[in-house]
Write a protein that binds this DNA or RNA. Sequence first.
RNA 1: GUGGCCGUAGCUCAGCCCGGUUAGAGCGCCAGGUUGUGGUCCUGGAAGUCGGGGGUUCGAGUCCCCUCGGUCACCCCA
Length: 451
Amino acid sequence: MTETRREQFQALRGMRDILPPESARRRELTQQFITHCERAGYQEVVPPLLEDLGVFLRVGEATDVVTKEMYDFVDKDQTRIALRPEMTAGVMRAFVQHRPVLPWKVWYAGTNFRHERPQKGRYRMFDQLGVEALGVDDADLDVEIIAMASRFFASLGLRQVTLLINSLGEHEDREQYTEAVRLYLLAHQYELSEASQATLERNPLRVLDSKRSEDQQIIADAPLVADYLSEDSANHYARVLAGLDSLGVSYTEDPRLVRGLDYYRRTTFEFAADALDSAQNAIGGGGRYDGLAEAMGGPATDGVGFALGVDRILLACDAEGVFATEPTTLDVFVIDTVSGDAARDITHQLRAAGISADRRFGGGSMKSQMKSADRSGARFALIIGEDELAAHAVTLRPMLGHQADGEQRRVARADLLFELTRYSSQTVTNQINPHPADSASADPTNSGTLT
RNA sequence: GUGGCCGUAGCUCAGCCCGGUUAGAGCGCCAGGUUGUGGUCCUGGAAGUCGGGGGUUCGAGUCCCCUCGGUCACCCCA
């Protein structure tokens, strides 16, 4: 008789459930992103969630993302594998493995894992949208993808997004510059914050990213990468900027922009949402990674790409009050105050005909069923009571007050489908969850009349 | 990973400083407001191991410790 208390589980730290209506909003966001990508000739690539640990080590031995934050473990066959902390490494591995025809322009939408201390806009499991374009050295490609991301943000309604851009130069340029920065910082080592001194030893460039106030003055006087760019790099960068100018994409040059993943060469950029706090205002970032394919054991191949953070984009949308969740809609909500037989059958038949329909289970009064209909967001309540049953008819009640929907009326069951499709051809559609309302895909035996 | 703040009904929160009868509110949910009709209004109702564990005390939501989770800053990055 003693009831043992069961432990209540909750989602793992840094991981959360995405419930309706937020789930629909995310899907819509992804949908819009895909539209932009495919319009520009990018196709989807779906790499595995798990890779050999080496795949990730190859792209960033010195980065926190792979050294400290990776979910890596020994598999049952003793191989060391990891949940991907980002998508580029896996896409590059796939590229090298399959050697697709160049140029290879792909987009992805996927989940990544990073074992960090969670915070708002920073979760251990998070989704990224991104593109990778391989096999093209042309600066215009940099422009293409930056413009694409920029347009995507704009299409969501975001206005306060700043594009920060910089060039880190070719491999050698970057090496020389890094050394210059290292020497400079070393000279001012004891003026730096303790944390930055530690960073200096591991990765001098990253010190330029420090947000600590005591570092700011020193950072401000650090050498500029622009002085270390080769002629080719400088030209490439100039053409990128010119291209952005030509397309009307505004940007801010940020000579301190280095970015966390170490594989970037030449162009690097970041999208900052000014409506968000600085801790999570990076809603996207990317750049060129011309040496990556080689590092992965493939042929030398140029590449550019970016990754956008779904959660942060949504956060930015919230902050700007745009891209609101669309209320869910339904064509018809079926109310049956008799036996429930009619609700069961008619709902099924409507769906077969491509009309979205729902109902309430377990009966209930007319009033309570109407409430459910209201809550469902349905355009019409379809009412079946004793009278309708006897008359082989239904009552159609418009719920949303659209003029085109007319007044409440009695419709013969034989005419119901015709009556409803008249409206569905106008605007009875569900924006979030579009259903194919074409009768071609509907069950032919049900496409005529409802009985 | 380091430090600060927070954790009470499904949600937003009051109560905690100054321990003491059945822990409250709004929203939401459910049911009614006579004959079959939602969105407004009125009435009633259900719903809380006061994040979890331990301690102090005659007595703890209220005090102490630990722990889990969230959040903010750093770090890092999307």
